[in-house]
């Protein structure tokens, strides 16, 4: 019970984990490659959400120093890390998508199961 209430209290973490599992599940079970890439993005983004949520301080302001002398900032480090993360994730998906187009040319399909079948027939 205590654990449940803790989970509900940290609902950001909970949502992030749920999203992570959905993303991973979609990525591994669907055979369409484009779908896999979308799911991969969802999975990555959910981890970024978790990161940002960790850095969040309740009632904290964005870490922009404007000279007025705010006292409570959110932790800026996760944000900086996630910027890198997003860029990396996008480049990975761009690469994956370009592969998909090549695969379409080579096999005439982008479905993993169908490709397996084609290769099995050979």
């Amino acid at each position: 019970m205590e654990m449940l209430s803790r989970l509900i209290h940290n609902y950001f973490y909970l949502a992030a984990i749920i999203l992570f599992v959905i993303g991973m599940h979609t990525m591994l079970t669907h055979s369409n490659m484009v779908k896999k890439v979308i799911a991969m993005n969802i999975m990555d983004t959910s981890v970024f959400l978790l990161f940002v949520a960790i850095g969040y301080v309740r009632g904290g302001k964005p870490p922009i120093i404007d000279g007025i002398g705010e006292t409570l900032y959110v932790n800026p480090l996760p944000g900086a890390l996630i910027l890198t993360g997003i860029v990396v994730a996008v480049s990975i998906s761009a690469y994956a998508l370009s592969l998909i187009i090549k695969i379409q040319r080579a096999y005439g399909t982008v479905d993993c199961d169908e490709i397996c079948q084609i290769r099995g027939d050979e």
Binding site: F12, N41, G55, L83, I86, V90, A94, L97
Partner: peptide, 25 residues
């Protein structure tokens, strides 16, 4: 969550560019 910088990058890259690439694919 007070992370406007990340939000902007996500909107531009994670949503915009990635979705565009996917549509192209």
């Amino acid at each position: 969550l007070s992370a406007p910088d990340v939000a902007m990058v996500e909107a531009a890259l994670g949503t915009g560019v990635a979705a565009l690439l996917m549509i192209a694919a």
